[in-house]
Amino acid sequence: MSHILDLFKPMIPSLINSLHKGQAGRVAVMGGSKEYTGAPYFSGISSLRIGSDICHIFTPTEGGTATALKTLSPELIVHPIEKNDPSEIIPWLLSLHVIIIGPGLGRSQGAWNCASEVIKAARNINLPIVLDGDALRLVAENLEIIKGYDRAILTPNFVEFKNLSDSVKKMMGDTSNNLLKPEQVASQLGNITIVQKGKEDLITDGNQVILCDNEGMPRRCGGQGDILAGAIGTMFAWSQLYYKYNNNNSDKIQENEQQYPISMISSFAACSLLRHSSKKAFEKNRRSTITQDIINEIPKCFEELFPESL
């Protein structure tokens, strides 16, 4: 599948002196809760390590979550959100290239109501969305908030995918005990992109399927999904920017589209980077490998996967 990485390479922003801050990606993460502070940090710092210029974190004040995140890294722009008020987030959407919703979000009704309003607002302006973690449980309860939006990427693990499958079957009137295939779920939801995480990452838009089975690591430390969400969001933003600034190169873009949509190309590149980084981290740290070890490998592994990407 190295040819898919070749399709992604032109979408990586060139590092040239004439660039302005933000042109290589303005990413946001909406998530975090009093129980889960690390998740949005892992997504956000991974995005910056991959090469986005700016990363905003929208996170609640409850339980000191926002304060804790502010102390983890001065690189992240942390917005403390009072009482899950979506009006504190929605005005920022116009300045973003992608929003990642779900890492550490939790399952409170207030957080879910806020996330629903932000998803609706993002759809209204065609902002790319990556949905992860508890945001996928929210989608499973209300498929309509994401159905038909082809600028959305969903990143379920096995349990999260089963919830989505059950909800789609209910929508279809299917009373069997069968688990739908990811491509069936993607198709029923209007050909949105699904990245089903597992031993192999299966990426589909309902029409086509790509498997990412590159070697990763056997250590299942928490946080790897958060890294992947940050990676997918960043790379999806880059692909959107590539289209925006290369509209005079329509023949090349059309050729790529006929092979795979950019949501799938971006997702495959992100899955490949996470697997390569986790493999390298495990080679050094073995059983003691933690999420930060994987993040530390991202810079070198990115250059190994995408040589001469400057």
Rank of each mutant, 00 (worst) to 15 (best):
H56M: 07
Q188L: 01
E75Y: 05
L131Y: 11
T175G: 03
I57E: 10
V185R: 03
E75P: 03
K70W: 04
S73N: 13
A66H: 09
R137A: 11
S116H: 12
E82M: 02
N163F: 04
L105N: 01
A229R: 00
A152W: 08
L241C: 06
E297Y: 10
P86R: 01
V168W: 13
P128D: 00
L7T: 05
E35P: 02
I16F: 09
K284W: 04
I146Y: 04
P128N: 01
N17C: 05
D174M: 14
L241F: 07
T193H: 10
P261T: 06
L211S: 15
Q224T: 05
N214S: 14
G106F: 04
D251V: 14
E255M: 07
I4L: 13
E283L: 14
I16T: 15
Y243F: 12
K199W: 00
S52V: 15
I16S: 14
I100C: 05
A135F: 04
V139I: 13
Q258I: 07
F158W: 12
W238M: 12
K279Q: 13
A115E: 07
N157T: 11
L72N: 02
T67S: 15
F236D: 02
G110K: 01
D132A: 08
L19Y: 13
K181N: 07
P182H: 09
D205I: 06
G44W: 05
R137P: 00
I50G: 01
T59A: 01
M264S: 07
S309V: 05
L131H: 07
N248R: 15
I57W: 02
R219V: 13
Y41K: 08
P156F: 11
R286C: 09
P182I: 06
D205Q: 10
M30A: 11
G64Q: 06
D150V: 14
E75I: 02
K83M: 04
E88C: 06
M217A: 15
E283H: 02
V185S: 03
F302L: 15
M171L: 14
Y149F: 15
Q259L: 15
T193F: 08
H20T: 12
N157F: 09
G32H: 06
T37C: 11
F268S: 00
T291G: 01
N126D: 15
L96W: 08
L127A: 06
D174A: 11
S167N: 10
I101S: 04
G51S: 01
A28G: 11
A269T: 05
D6P: 01
G106R: 04
R275P: 10
L273I: 12
S2C: 04
N285C: 09
A68Y: 02
G233E: 11
G223T: 12
N157M: 06
I227W: 10
C221V: 13
Y243N: 12
P218V: 12
R219D: 07
